[in-house]
Write a protein that binds this DNA or RNA. Sequence first.
DNA 1: GTCTATAGAAGGATAGAC
DNA 2: GTCTATCCTTCTATAGAC
Lengths: 199, 199
Amino acid sequence: MLTPSEMAEAGDTTLRLMMAAADAFAELGYHATTTRDIASRAGLSPAGVYVHFSSKEALLFEVSRLGHQTARDLLHRLAESAASPSEALRALIGGFARWHAEHYQLGRIVQFEFRNLSQEHRAEVRGLRREIDTVVAEVLAEGVRRGDFVVDDIRGTALALMSMAVDVARWYTPDTRRTPDAIEATYADLALRLVGAAR
Amino acid sequence: MLTPSEMAEAGDTTLRLMMAAADAFAELGYHATTTRDIASRAGLSPAGVYVHFSSKEALLFEVSRLGHQTARDLLHRLAESAASPSEALRALIGGFARWHAEHYQLGRIVQFEFRNLSQEHRAEVRGLRREIDTVVAEVLAEGVRRGDFVVDDIRGTALALMSMAVDVARWYTPDTRRTPDAIEATYADLALRLVGAAR
DNA sequence: GTCTATAGAAGGATAGAC
DNA sequence: GTCTATCCTTCTATAGAC
């Protein structure tokens, strides 16, 4: 597990490799990316990668884990700083959609390369995913309890909400006309509609 | 372009190869699938593939095109047989979500392997995608015009609606507890909420 | 910690017999 | 139209010099 301070300790090259890998995986997909490509994007020889990571899959794992952790931390921050379930839901889904636009590369790896992790690494990342889903489900449950939301299937609605935000990473590119700001606003509004929030 | 009758004419083996490829691509992803794997799933030797398809990418293209055509035709049927924009939207999003569950393999290839098509093939499939998006946008526009829906951003809302349905293919597996029936009902309801339909 | 060189394996596609 | 055999390329990962 690499904390930010451990990454600084580990030196620039490890981080540079992770960024190069993230670029390449997002652009081409995991299996279409070669370790040579990652190395050259990071300014290293093909062999240079293996000083810092034991395999290509290990690189995917570190990138995927960092992405999941970042997403989870973002959602925790957004949920905590909201005054009501409605505000929390706006912040969560708007913010998550925005994140998937602004960091669509990391988002793609998080959402679409999960299957390419090893069994052990998948299990570890699955824990982070549960934390992410739980944040949303808890806000929905609290909103229903307070009578702010009308939702009969909390898990199903949470899933649909996340689907909207996650899918942004699939279609967003830097030359998309919709700005991250606009995406955030749109998805925040749509989220409230989806839970039948009183307007 | 293979019409159904042309496929019958082309014989079982072509179709069997396409089904084998669809299975493998959906399970492993395009780049992680080997032509040997496809051949053996279809009961052929590795060389047998190339009698029917000129390359692995050609196989992906035929599967992807068939999937897009099937989805488009489904949406056209659903939209045409509805009596009102509300009914049409329920049918479209419920039915599209259901389709992505029942045919999650084809759905995954349609939605997540698009990038692996050649440039020419991507351009051709893009035409089918536009037709698919248009069906939904037209129902939204008609609903807004009639005053049944309250939507300020038609394209953006259409995109979010499709995201919900498309994302089903990412998380659905045959051992998912939610049945296609339940998914259809849930997403039909959510769609109406998302467009601010009067209840 | 980075390099050059290369081992060793696997994959896409073809040749040619049947 | 299917097979066996195989070419040729590319890839991950390692060996060993600096």
